[in-house]
Write a protein that binds this DNA or RNA. Structure first.
Lengths: 338, 338
DNA sequence: ATGAAAGCGCTAACAC
DNA sequence: GTGTTAGCGCTTTCAT
């Protein structure tokens, strides 16, 4: 490996001069600069980022801890975050917490060890008491995304309550009264807020929540499929169904299809989260779509501000969803409502 | 920030002893170890991975350069790779090359600067002459995935030729003679091999390739949609269609639906790459599915072997696909064939 | 406009 | 079983 010293020797200057031409951090005589650049070229020199980080105290690296890299939602998020960071000269280290605090701690611990300049975390259930305090102690700037309680950090989450309420309201407008809901993983804020939105819609029409019409899909395709299959096999099955996230929507659709039921004739369907293929499904899915791009880009903006030393009070941003009114709700032509 | 020196002072030992208890790299008296561990706990010490990497000459970090993080295929790949690396004590740095050599060079350059111990690259078209030689010069172990020419590296790619041939053969078996193909991005091996497979199937039945039945989808949903729409608007449109990757399949389906045509009545359809929702689409999609998990895990295995110093000749592994025989091809019940 | 030199926090001979 | 010491390759004062 060739070092700055090699370059310096070849160019007949000191290492410090090489460093300065590389970083543009002080004036260098044009002729000297040329010599240095030629020497760099000649030996094929490439700076050692590790040594650089150690000396400078910054790594230009940001860590991202998310719960399930397989979920296309997080795929898009990683993409948005990577692009925004890359534009700012940072690189992204990703870790998957598998929605489990102990894996999460391994992941974030490793990021902390590597001296990331900041981190973006989609917290697993329970991390307020484990992972987050650890990050706080390390003084590493952090922003929370997707979910999480108010624990004194910047936080950027999708609008949950109103969007879920809107979904159920639409079903109510259509005359449904027995509406079942497929609820996400217990203990995370998005599950709670979306479920609350659903309940609020029912309450708005004076309908009590029927516990037999609430199924726990645990944010999992398989669990949702199993539970919905059981639910829809009952004689007193609901006339409409709302699924509260993308993974569970797939399970729900599989269950309905498996039972030979059709949407919306046998059961009306709406869901939180959109898919690239929502328009392709028959009938087209009525859904509340998150703006993942905005979530990712905003998270990076807030984080970079913190890294630059911002001492503003923590911000809490809610990114609105878009209601895609299609046909799975039972409407044929789709006037935009709400 | 607290350092090893602080811990050493508090425990009344030398820094080197602290290092050794931390790394288990030499015997330490049980009592001393306990004192050190207590001291670590007390000051909330956490090792500085940057300094560690500089001194040790290894970063326990692997870089991944892929072409399009938004593609769910790569999402799954990142997931598999991350898990395999994490199990081996490595972390993953990801970069998106946007299928463009100059972005790719930025990405890989940045990974090299950061002294990754190895890298996994899904090369962009043209990188044999730019990015790859640069990585070679740096002596960083590398494995190629998804595509790429034979340029003396370990390489792990899906089986393309035979899988694509099988898709077209199936259509031919069903009696189709005017079969159109939606081809991927020019210049990458997967496009070429899959297209060759298609042509070989036709040739096998003595059918010449009709250039008007070959559309370039450029591996893009939007381009495929536009091109397929044009193709299927013609009076002499084909009776069957094969799409050669996932993004183009979505575009193709949108075009067909937009035209009010139905599968398989108006046109039979088969595709390379599977989706989580292939079973949900009506009709269910007949597809050749890549084994992304195996690709990712194998890539990591080969890479770690290189990092550990293996000097074996470069290996070239083809991971077989699975033929999912469903209904979009026009078959109603689906006996497995081939 | 440039150089010398002191670290950054750790690992790994090498001594005892 | 433990300490001393010399780096790893760079950045950054401080001189000149």
């Amino acid at each position: 490996m060739t070092t700055m010293g090699d370059v310096a020797r070849l160019a007949g200057v000191s290492a410090s001069t090489v460093s300065h031409v590389l970083n543009g951090t002080r004036n260098v005589n044009a002729a000297t600069r040329l010599r240095v650049e030629a020497a760099i070229e000649e030996v094929g020199y490439r700076r050692n980022g590790v040594a650089r980080s150690l000396a400078a105290g910054r790594t230009h690296t940001v860590g991202l801890s998310i719960s399930a890299l397989t979920n296309p939602y997080f795929g898009s998020l990683v993409h948005a975050v990577e692009r925004a960071l890359s534009d700012a000269g940072y690189v992204l280290i990703v870790g998957d917490s598998h929605d489990d605090v102990s894996s999460e701690q391994r992941v974030t611990g490793s990021l902390l060890d590597r001296q990331v300049d900041g981190m973006i975390v989609a917290p697993a259930a329970g991390s307020e008491r484990t992972t987050l305090p650890e990050i706080t102690r390390s003084q590493t700037p952090m922003v929370l995304i997707d979910r999480g309680e108010d624990v004194g950090f910047d936080r950027i989450v999708p609008e949950n309550f109103g969007s879920a309420k809107g979904l159920t309201d639409h079903l109510l407008d259509l005359g449904h009264r027995r509406i079942a809901v497929v609820r996400g993983l217990a203990g995370i804020s998005s599950t709670i807020e979306r479920f609350d939105g659903h309940c609020a819609a029912l309450a708005g029409r004076g309908i009590a929540v029927d516990p037999t019409l609430v199924v726990d899909g645990e944010s999992s395709t398989d669990v949702a499929e199993r539970e919905v299959r059981a639910l829809m096999s009952r004689a007193d099955r609901p006339t409409a169904l709302v699924s509260l996230n993308n993974a569970m929507t797939i399970g729900t659709l599989k269950a309905i299809r498996g039972l030979g039921l059709s949407i919306p004739q046998d059961v009306a369907f709406v869901c939180y989260d959109d898919f690239e293929w929502s328009d392709l499904f028959e009938p087209r899915l009525t859904a509340a779509a998150q703006d993942v791009e905005t979530i990712g880009v905003t998270a990076v903006e807030l984080l970079l501000a913190r890294i630059r030393g911002s001492e503003e009070p923590p911000r809490h941003i809610r990114v609105p969803t878009t209601f895609h009114h299609r046909n799975s709700c039972g409407c044929t032509s789709a006037p935009v409502r709400r």
